[in-house]
């Protein structure tokens, strides 16, 4: 197997004083292969956004990162701070959750897309202008020649998210990180934006790391899924395996709580309890309080990621026992 495009190893994100750190991401490890679409799934507060921001080192200033984030074999966390702008936008593009606030209100969308090109590539202004129009066309903006001089305030949320995608794709990055790109949008617009992203992926052959809490979106779009819970990766599998044979009790609970069209009479399953706030669980498995399969051991020691099959890993003592038995 070839080396993955993005290889996150033992990533930890800490806030607060070094003597009493508040850890929001614990030993996160997963990979994204070239051209692969990976979904990073979890409830809000699971640390998935922080993990995504860590890749570009856009976490808040107070956060401390440790571990390794290998991009094309280079550790981004070891890179001097001043070299990060070379990676951002050029190697890795990012689309954010809030299309309404993520664009600068006093710059035209054309100028904002152009800036992304300007920062990384030298080319004549006319050519750059043409590239901006092409990008707008690529993301499905109707009448790009006219809209290029409009301000973000003149667009709807879906259109702004297309502009965001155009910015992220401006320099043909090999990896696109999309942090809940469709959460703030209407359902019909969500589908359009997702279709647009897949279309871009197929044309430019970029890898996508899609952060979402919506399993439906993941099932539709992704090839592989990484499930996070309370700052830990708890399961990692390709999409078919995960949906047919989930191994972690949390994933199982999540899947049971997705409504289906075929069986509308059944009351939806709900995982009892709620996600513990970061820092409240210092030992053992964070899911144990809500887990139907918990063992004594769960309170003492965090289960390691155990291989469950080809490209399938899960972190649960109960399933580890089953696998052995």
């Amino acid at each position: 197997m070839t080396e993955p495009l993005l290889d996150i190893r033992n990533l930890c994100v800490d806030f607060g004083p070094a003597s009493k750190p508040l850890r929001v991401a614990h030993n996160i490890s997963f990979t994204v292969g070239a051209g692969e679409t990976v979904g990073l799934v979890g409830e809000s507060g699971s640390g998935k956004s922080m993990t995504a921001l860590s890749v570009l080192r856009l976490v808040p200033e107070a956060a401390r990162l440790s571990g390794e984030i290998l991009y094309g074999g280079r550790d981004l966390l070891a890179l001097p701070k001043r070299d990060m702008p070379e990676v951002r936008g050029k190697e890795i593009g990012m689309v954010f959750q809030e299309p309404m606030s993520s664009l600068n209100p006093v710059m035209t969308i054309g100028a904002q897309i152009e800036e992304a090109i300007l920062l990384h590539e030298r080319m004549p202004a006319a050519e750059r202008r043409k590239r901006v129009i092409d990008l707008l066309r690529l993301v499905g903006m109707p009448d790009p020649e006219a809209r290029v001089n409009a301000y973000p305030g003149q667009f709807s949320g879906g259109m702004r998210q297309r502009v965001m995608a155009a910015i992220a794709m401006a320099c043909n990055p090999r990896l696109l990180i999309a942090d809940e790109p469709t959460t703030a949008l209407d359902v019909t617009i969500q589908a359009q934006v997702l279709a647009m992203m897949l279309d871009i992926r197929d044309r430019l052959n970029s890898a996508i790391l899609l952060i979402t809490h919506d399993l439906g979106v993941v099932a539709e779009v992704c090839e592989r899924i990484v499930v996070m819970y309370a700052g830990h990766v708890v399961e990692d599998a390709d999409v078919h395996t995960l949906f047919s044979r989930p191994r972690h009790p949390y994933t199982q609970g999540l899947l049971q709580s997705v409504p289906t069209l075929t069986d509308t009479r059944k009351r939806l399953y709900q995982i009892p309890g709620s996600v513990p706030p970061a820092g409240t669980i210092t030992q053992g498995c964070p899911f144990r309080a809500r887990c139907p399969k918990r063992l004594d051991r769960c309170a003492v020691e965090m289960p390691p990621m155990v291989t469950q099959g080809p490209s399938h890993r899960a972190a649960c003592w109960a399933t580890a026992m089953e696998a052995v038995a």
Partner: peptide, 11 residues
Amino acid sequence: DYVRTARAKGA
């Protein structure tokens, strides 16, 4: 948020 976008562009 748009300042974060600018950073993400590589500014």
